[in-house]
Computed example of a mutant assay.
Amino acid sequence: MRATITEHRPDVAVLHLQGELDADTAEQLRAALAGLLDRPVPRIVVDLTGLKFCDSIGLSTFVISKEVIAARGGWLSFAAANPFLTTLLETVGLNRYFAIFPEVDDAIAAGQL
């Protein structure tokens, strides 16, 4: 898995994920999120466009990060999930826990509300 971060507006970071997120690569996700979680009010959009697979370890990393972010008054949302990831998030019920948007720009705009 590869993770890159871009800044949108002064207060929103977009975490772009590519490849497969599993037990072997979850540490890369944790490392990428670590710096973003240090922000006073983290606002993060996870761009799932290039993510082809995610297992339970990856999902739990997102859940734990969201709990930290919410405690600080921030938010974490998903954007551009492929059909596999959309089905996965619905099957495990995380579509009720995370805001999921069709495009990154939609997620950024919704965060302004």
Rank of each mutant, 00 (worst) to 15 (best):
D24V: 05
E67I: 06
L17S: 08
D22M: 05
A81Y: 10
A79S: 07
E27R: 05
H8D: 10
V14M: 14
G93F: 15
D11G: 02
G74Y: 03
A23N: 10
R72Q: 11
T4S: 13
S77P: 03
A26F: 13
R43A: 08
L29Q: 00
D47V: 02
D24Q: 12
L29W: 04
R9C: 14
A32V: 00
L76S: 01
R96Q: 13
E90M: 12
Q18T: 12
C54R: 04
E67P: 01
V92T: 03
I108V: 04
T6F: 07
H8T: 12
A109W: 05
A13L: 14
E27Q: 09
A32L: 10
L76M: 14
L17Y: 06
E90H: 10
T49D: 14
Q18S: 14
R43N: 07
G74S: 06
S60P: 03
I44A: 01
F62H: 12
Y97M: 14
C54M: 15
V41E: 15
A80T: 02
I108C: 01
P83W: 11
D38L: 06
C54A: 15
R96W: 06
K52C: 15
D106T: 00
I64Y: 07
A107N: 03
L76C: 06
W75I: 06
L48T: 00
F84D: 12
D47A: 08
A3R: 00
E27W: 11
Q28F: 11
E103H: 08
P40M: 08
R2T: 04
A31M: 11
D11N: 06
Y97L: 13
G73R: 08
L76R: 00
E7T: 04
G58M: 15
